[in-house]
Computed example of a mutant assay.
Amino acid sequence: MNRNAMKTAAGYAAGLMFGLGLAISGMTDPARVLGFLDVAGAWDPTLMFVLGGAVVTTFIGYRLVFKRSAPLLGGVFQLPTKQELDGKLLGGAALFGIGWGLSGYCPGPAIASIGGVSLPLAAMLVTMVLGWFAAKRLG
């Protein structure tokens, strides 16, 4: 199998594992996310454990990956170089947070939930795509 096919297969496998993890953990249910954000009401700590698991996995994974001189399926590691905070980053983060808080979906769970599309999910997906186009035009 050639390198491009391997990269594509690895991308699909990673996406499948991510989607299954979201579904198994219940993060495709917007009520669970909104319950986590409702700290003054019926708070649901499940998301904190999912995020904690992601942090631990990332911490271990980065240490293992960076012991290598190059990625398995690529020529060089492509790491971000920009380190300063600017208006675009802060504005994008604020819009993401507002959308997440209003809908209970972020992009991963929204795409993983597309099989059971509802009006709130469709609205979130449409505004997400509009946001991508707006970011390209403004960037």
Rank of each mutant, 00 (worst) to 15 (best):
N2V: 00
N2R: 10
R3V: 07
A9D: 04
L16Y: 08
M17C: 05
F18I: 09
G19I: 02
L20P: 00
L20Q: 01
G21D: 00
G21S: 01
A23G: 09
I24D: 03
S25K: 04
M27T: 13
A31V: 01
A31Q: 11
V33I: 14
G35K: 08
F36R: 02
D38W: 06
A40E: 15
P45K: 05
P45Q: 09
P45A: 03
L51Y: 04
V56S: 01
V56T: 05
V56R: 04
I60L: 15
Y62F: 11
V65W: 12
K67M: 08
S69L: 09
S69G: 07
A70G: 05
L73D: 06
L73S: 02
G74V: 00
G75N: 12
F77K: 03
Q78K: 10
L79W: 08
T81W: 06
K82E: 11
K82V: 07
Q83R: 13
E84M: 05
L85V: 00
D86K: 11
G87M: 10
G87E: 14
K88N: 05
L89W: 14
G92N: 06
L95K: 09
G101M: 14
G101K: 00
L102E: 04
G108R: 02
I111R: 07
G115D: 09
G116S: 14
V117W: 14
P120R: 07
P120Q: 13
L121W: 00
A122Y: 03
A123Q: 10
L125H: 07
L125K: 10
V126A: 13
T127H: 09
M128P: 03
L130K: 07
L130M: 15
G131Y: 01
W132Q: 12
W132A: 11
F133V: 14
A134R: 06
A134F: 15
A135W: 15
K136S: 09
G139T: 06
